[in-house]
Amino acid sequence: MARRAKARASIHFFANPGRFLRAARIAYPWCAGVAGVCIAAGLVLGLYLVPADYRQGDAYRIMFVHVPSAWMAMFIYVGMAVASAAGFIWRHPLADVVAKASAPVGAAFTFIALLSGSLWGQPMWGTWWVWDARLTSMLVLFFLYLGYIALQNAFEDPTKGARAGAILALVGVINIPIVKFSVDWWNTLHQPATISKVDTPSMHASMIAPLLLMVVGFTAYYFMVLILRVRGEIAARRIRNLRLAQAGH
């Protein structure tokens, strides 16, 4: 058992993350560059150059932050679940680290999506919060992220925390479509009469460019932060292992 654990630690943990770190060193400036350029261009285009919407005025510009954040929130959760599955099935420590490092970023994007949705709701619907199906399922997603982070942090041993987190993430990913479906159904039954959602006609072509730029920029930003966080996590685990080895002598 001890030998197996040691072999696992040396083969997977030091060889593979080493390769990852080398690849990350090359990828990091690219991600940072793409994120910076795309977000800057998308913001300038979206906030200044694109004409205002004839119905929503300038308020619709929140969309250029809101939609990419909501998209990232779901993308990161799926990525987290895939990484968790890989970590759980093949006991791949790097996948565990990726899943753990993704969670706070995903939670942050979910929060931004909720916040910007609420800010967008104020001029559109006249209230800060409506129990709209999308807002509600986003809120549940946010709670799932919080639960995942809390569970990860409750374990002292990071490998155990990762495995517990993986189970939770996988249970969550089965549940997310069900939550989405149930909230949609619930909302159609309880649709408040005062609120008629502005239905989105086919978007004007000039709005698509900044939206795509923001999506690409946010994705690149996620990978940039992910690399930073994974690096930090690997360093923290090395320190932990060294300390444990030292204490063992």
């Binding site: 709670f143 799932l144 639960g147 969550g172 549940n175 939550v179 149930s182």
Partner: peptide, 13 residues
């Protein structure tokens, strides 16, 4: 914290 978000669909139905 872990379980309540997963209870949402059951509550709704």
């Amino acid at each position: 914290l872990l379980v309540l978000p997963l209870y949402v669909p059951i509550l709704i139905f």
